[in-house]
Design a protein around this nucleic acid. Sequence first.
DNA 1: ATCTGCTCTGAATAGTTGTTCAGTTCTTGC
DNA 2: GCAAGAACTGAACAACTATTCAGAGCAGAT
Lengths: 225, 225
Amino acid sequence: MVYRRTHQVVKRLAARRSAILAAAREAAAEGGMVAVQIAPVAVRANVAAGTVYRYFPSKADLISELIAEVSRDELAAIRRAADAAPGPSSALAAAVTTVAVHTLSQRKLAWGILAEPVDVDVSASRLASRREIAGEIASRIDAAVRAGHLPAQDTALAATALLGALHEALVGPLAPDNLEDPVKLRDAVQTVTLLALRAVGVMDARARGLVVQQTVLPAKALEGA
Amino acid sequence: MVYRRTHQVVKRLAARRSAILAAAREAAAEGGMVAVQIAPVAVRANVAAGTVYRYFPSKADLISELIAEVSRDELAAIRRAADAAPGPSSALAAAVTTVAVHTLSQRKLAWGILAEPVDVDVSASRLASRREIAGEIASRIDAAVRAGHLPAQDTALAATALLGALHEALVGPLAPDNLEDPVKLRDAVQTVTLLALRAVGVMDARARGLVVQQTVLPAKALEGA
DNA sequence: ATCTGCTCTGAATAGTTGTTCAGTTCTTGC
DNA sequence: GCAAGAACTGAACAACTATTCAGAGCAGAT
């Protein structure tokens, strides 16, 4: 055995793998999932097409990891925002706002991760991604219900419906197209957050209060976008 | 000119066109949009593959017409249900329930029309379809707002969000899978209708009342499914 | 009956991309 | 250096289906 993976090589391999994933993510962010094709991604990562297959068994695996990665990031952001909130209703509002802001600040990526047609089967990974996010929202709704702030309900279904509403309203084909304007964007975030909170049973007046509370957060988050 | 299209021929041609469309619809209902492939559709319509192209310039056109047709049917059903309601809030509830019931009774078709990946570009037609349905819902919300039953709001955005919520909760990948059971199915319809009504600002108690009012309708409609 | 022109057929074509693999280049240990 | 093995390359391949088109079949007028 005259060849052994040295630490340096291991690092380089890992870096290359990340580069490929990052290239895929960039491609998706710029052009949606259609743009995530092996050859262009390889070029972007400074690698030959064949090399991609040394790191990912198939395009489906590459995209699945991409979805998982983005999903992880989003879940972390939701938790961070919700955990910083003073109470369960506020946490729910924060979670919803976070999803809305994230979705909006990376529209193409979000659409690609969620629903854009892909030529390979990534349904398992999309399902997992949705499950994670929906589960988190469901548990926040649940906390608010347990605290007596909301009526008892099927929290899993409610969480699913909320996400559907957010996504359709913000990145679906009927989403307003003037969201480049930061003011319109914030209005859209507030409107959908309000809808979402009322949907699970927050009273109109209280929901409006919670939405206002959240206004500081998205302003900060959106600057980074 | 020794040949002229006689009435009989015109009728046969029209019938054949319908047969192809119907075949496509059946295929979509059974296997989703992936099953709408030229060769299988042709077989189902008792026609050769090439013949399809004498009626539809391309697969995209075929699917676009399919989407338009289904969409027209749905819109008509929504109007019928809403117009039969005694007042604006009730009409809104009826409209939402109708969408939910239709979506559920033809899950694969609904998913295909709405969001399933297709290898050709049908986004224009999907957009039109969504616009029609969302427009109808928006105008029902608007009526309820004008009647003073709901707070003022961006009705277009609200309608979009409602549809997103319904679709995601009922035919999206996280939709409950026990909806074969008619009782569970009705529960699901009621739950999402309740969420939708509350989202636009109907108070919890009143929303529950409206949902109960709608219980007769879906029971009848679902029998036909 | 027959000619004309429309309609239908279905095998062949074409275009698109994911995937492979024989050959090349690089890395490591001696 | 050099041998051995790993990693990389990129052109060729494969598979899948929408689409085409030359020829066969049919309907209508005379």
